[in-house]
Structure formats: structure tokens, C-alpha cells
């Protein structure tokens, strides 16, 4: 090149654009089978790429933090530092019970716990809610049928069972909702334990709805 005074870099053996295109088209178009022998390069490339993918997959598996949006340190995975003696998480029974109440009970007894006069009895300031645990658990567990006097007013309807014979609620759900209604709307009774609900359920088994008269015999 240096002997050329005015270079325009015309190559010694130039390829025109058309030659360039067609020469390379020939390579890709005529993929010949070389009489049973195979080329080494495709295998090398295949192994190289497979190796990289294998490495990448392994690395991703080790350090991706399970693709969790909450894991920022790839080596500090939560399960690695879990304490096997850790206490189970405490559930706030009132909040849990409120959820149950709002999912089911509030249609009749109303969100304010006052019920509907003449149709559904109130829970607020109700002696049935605040007095005997045994009776209250049985009403929710098995239901109540027939006339009942609440705060001096008589209602005549049917309360469906939430226990195994009705909605199929677990004992802790029932305990939670009862704990909730016993401290809400000015009610001032203590919480009801899940164990107490379990105890009553095992004692009475499955049965039809109670009547108020039957319940009043229970302390």
C-alpha cells in the first residue's frame, strides 16, 4: 500500500458487492454431505454452547435466590438460616375472627352486630354471646332452631350450623369468630380457646340444631 501515492484502498483482488453476496450464499446454500465423514467444528461448537448453558443453568440455580423478589443476597437464602426450634407464628384471634365474621355472619347479624329487628337477633349486648361459653359454642357449632329470647325480645328463626354438619369450619375459625364477637360492639367477655371448641365438638359429635330450651339446661 505504501508505494501508492494516492490511495483509495482498491483491493488487489477486489470482491464486488454482488460477488460478495453470491459467494457467501453458496456456502450456506450448498451444505454437502461429505460421504459419511463428519466435520469436527459443529461438534466443538455444540459442546461449547452446551457447556456454557450447563454452567449458566447451574450458576443460576445456585445464586438466583429462588427468583424471589424478596431475596437480595444470593448466599443468604431464608431456608439456610431457619431455626428448627422457632415458635409458630402467633395469630391475632380478634383480627382473624373479624375476617370470618365479615365473610359469613354479617349478612344476618349486620356489621354493627345489631341484627335486624324482628328477623335476626343482635349480638351486641346479647346475654347469649357474653354469658355461657358452652351454649355459645354449641349455637355456632350446630345451629339454633325455633324461638329464642334475646335482650327481652323473642325471635323465631333458624341459625345454620358453622361446624361439621353445616359450613364445615375448623375449630380455630369458630374460636376466632366467637372471640371477636365477645369483645366487639361493647361486649366485654373473655376469649374462647380453640381447645374449648374442640372439647365441645368431641363431646356432642354431630347433631341437629339446638333449641333455646335445650340450651338453657346447659350451664
Amino acid at each position: 500500500m505504501s508505494d501508492q501515492p494516492t490511495p483509495d484502498f482498491r483491493p488487489a483482488k477486489p470482491l464486488t458487492d454482488e460477488e460478495l453476496l453470491h459467494a457467501h450464499e453458496q456456502i450456506t446454500a450448498t451444505e454437502k454431505d461429505d460421504g459419511g465423514s463428519y466435520k469436527l467444528l459443529p461438534l466443538v461448537l455444540l459442546f461449547l454452547f452446551s457447556g456454557l448453558i450447563f454452567f449458566g443453568g447451574t450458576y443460576l440455580n445456585l445464586f438466583s435466590g429462588h427468583f424471589s423478589p424478596k431475596i437480595f443476597d444470593e448466599r443468604n437464602l431464608p431456608h439456610a438460616h431457619e431455626d428448627p426450634n422457632a415458635l409458630p407464628v402467633k395469630i391475632d384471634m380478634v383480627a382473624y375472627g373479624k375476617k370470618q365474621y365479615e365473610s359469613f355472619c354479617h349478612t344476618c347479624h349486620q356489621p354493627n352486630g345489631l341484627g335486624i329487628p324482628g328477623a335476626f337477633p343482635p349480638l351486641a349486648k346479647s346475654e347469649w354471646v357474653q354469658d355461657s361459653e358452652e351454649r355459645l359454642i354449641r349455637i355456632v357449632l350446630h345451629g339454633l332452631n325455633g324461638p329464642v329470647s334475646v335482650a327481652g325480645v323473642t325471635f323465631n328463626g333458624i341459625m345454620p350450623a358453622a361446624g361439621p354438619t353445616g359450613a364445615g369450619w375448623s375449630d380455630d375459625r369458630i374460636a376466632a369468630v366467637l372471640t371477636y364477637i365477645r369483645q366487639e360492639w361493647g361486649n366485654k367477655a373473655g376469649p374462647i380457646a380453640t381447645e374449648k371448641v374442640t372439647e365441645v365438638r368431641t363431646k356432642d359429635g354431630t347433631r341437629k340444631e339446638w333449641t333455646a330450651v335445650e340450651l338453657e339446661k346447659i350451664p
Binding site: 450458576y59 443460576l60 445464586f63 435466590g65 427468583f67 424471589s68 424478596k70 431475596i71 437480595f72 444470593e74
Partner: peptide
């Protein structure tokens, strides 16, 4: 940032 982003 979530660990998987730099890892990827």
C-alpha cells in the same frame, strides 16, 4: 435488587 437480576 432481587438477587436473580444480577445473577442472570
Amino acid at each position: 435488587v432481587p438477587a436473580w437480576i444480577p445473577t442472570l
